[in-house]
Design a protein around this nucleic acid. Sequence first.
DNA 1: CTGAAAGCGCTTACAG
DNA 2: CTGAAAGCGCTTACAG
Lengths: 324, 324
Amino acid sequence: MATIKDVAKLAKVSVGTVSKVISQDPTVKTVLRERVAAAIEELKYRPNHMARALRMNRLDVIGLVVPDITNPFFAQLAKCIEIEAAERHHTVTLANSHDDEETERRQLSTLIDRAPRGVIIVASSDNGKLEYSTDVPIVSVDRRFQNYPLISTNHAEGSAQLAKHLIDLGHKNIAYISGPLNTRVGRARKIGFEEYFARELEGVSDVSLSFYEGHFDYQSGEDIARRILSEYPDKRPTAIAAASDQIAIGVMRAARDLEIAIPDQLSVTGFDDINLASLVVPRLTTLRQPIAEIASAAVAAIMAESLVFEDVELRGDIVKRGST
Amino acid sequence: MATIKDVAKLAKVSVGTVSKVISQDPTVKTVLRERVAAAIEELKYRPNHMARALRMNRLDVIGLVVPDITNPFFAQLAKCIEIEAAERHHTVTLANSHDDEETERRQLSTLIDRAPRGVIIVASSDNGKLEYSTDVPIVSVDRRFQNYPLISTNHAEGSAQLAKHLIDLGHKNIAYISGPLNTRVGRARKIGFEEYFARELEGVSDVSLSFYEGHFDYQSGEDIARRILSEYPDKRPTAIAAASDQIAIGVMRAARDLEIAIPDQLSVTGFDDINLASLVVPRLTTLRQPIAEIASAAVAAIMAESLVFEDVELRGDIVKRGST
DNA sequence: CTGAAAGCGCTTACAG
DNA sequence: CTGAAAGCGCTTACAG
């Protein structure tokens, strides 16, 4: 493998000059620049990233830690981040925290030890902690890590869009299955839904609302829906809003088992717009999280040299499909 | 950040000695070892990976390139590889080729430039090429890249298991929807299926078999199944074996639209056992690819210093569920 | 068994 | 505008 020295020798310049033409330093005269470029070409020279990283104390890598890459939402996020990173000639290192605080802490340390340009993290819980201070920029996405800046969808506003949709459809008896209420996301989505009614209907209305707490997975959607739908057959809700697509898909399974037709007898909404949402029958009405924008904002935040960013909330859009 | 020099000074030894205790060199006397350990602890010293990488010309990173991390099979694979890598104190760098040869080539070069310990690649097509030679170990997984060693499921044998299952169930009229036959995987799965019949039934039987070529996605499963199921209503197949779960799920959608009951009027099988396979109604009978084993073998192959591995084929297991 | 020193391949003040 | 040189933080022959 050719080194910068070989290039310098061939181009009859110093290594400093070669380094400068590589980093596009404009003070290099055109003659030299061209000689160097030719030498690089001839030797098929490729800079050594480790040497540069050692010198600059910064690798062109973005660390990404997610609870579980197998979750379609995070996979989509990882893909978008990788694309953004590649545009800036950065590479992404992936770590899964498996929703475990201890693992998350370890993964984060491991990544930071590698002196990445920055790390993007989707927290696995609300009380993760980094064990030591660092100057590598950290931004949280979707779920806040510690007190690092957060880039996320405006969950409350998204829920409100869904609530409005259900009201516009004329539903009077609506159940909401939330995510875990000890998570910020779980709370934000629920509150947005709840407050829409408080605000728009000012309490004086014939709409009845009931709330159930679950986890963000298929199983709890199925279990809770089965309970809701079979308990009071006479005054069963005509719409169930779920705090995630996975919950919503669980709800749809329960409805199918109980032979309740969607959307005729029951409307269902989700949240996220994972791929599966449009593969299920009927296709799921949901709130699309602006993943590409989130990824883009996260990478930009890390690349900006400023270490102080504000939180950013991005607006999601409702996608109306067959389930409502 | 403390460096090895600080540790050496505090422990009153040379940096060489510190380096040796870190790398567990047994020639260091216990007294010194303990003094060094104490100093490391006190200073909260963490080795600089870049410096080490520069010196050793090898970073403790495994590169992974997949066509699309959003594909549940690859996400699962990435997760398993990450776990295996972490056990060996390695980190994984993810790249998506987006099923594009040019992007794949670029991603691979980028990864290799970073001097990883090795790279694991799921080829996006059968004719990818690496533009220059390298001494970083490369192993292909699932779909072979160039002529690098391949670790994969024994597709043909897996297909045979599925074929046997269908025969055991008494099906006499079976359709097989293959993946693209210009891919090795597509061919291997189809041939395994086909040959099971040739071998077991020796041609003398009343089983009729028909083949259709598709892509490994939902859409082609749905389209082809619709054609198969509506063309000859009188002698329509009683079983459709699909070359992937995604195809199979497309088939199930088509069947539902045509009001053909699964499994009563039609049995369906897939291949892969992605998460979705057990979330669909009815749950899909399929062949589970041994992903964890594949990941483990791939990482082991890279870590083994030997640059010559053989291909390895791992056996998958049939998972019988409600769709048959 | 331990230490002094060279060197991995870069970048960046500094001098000219 | 260009070059010579120091130094980033390690590892590893080599001498003792």
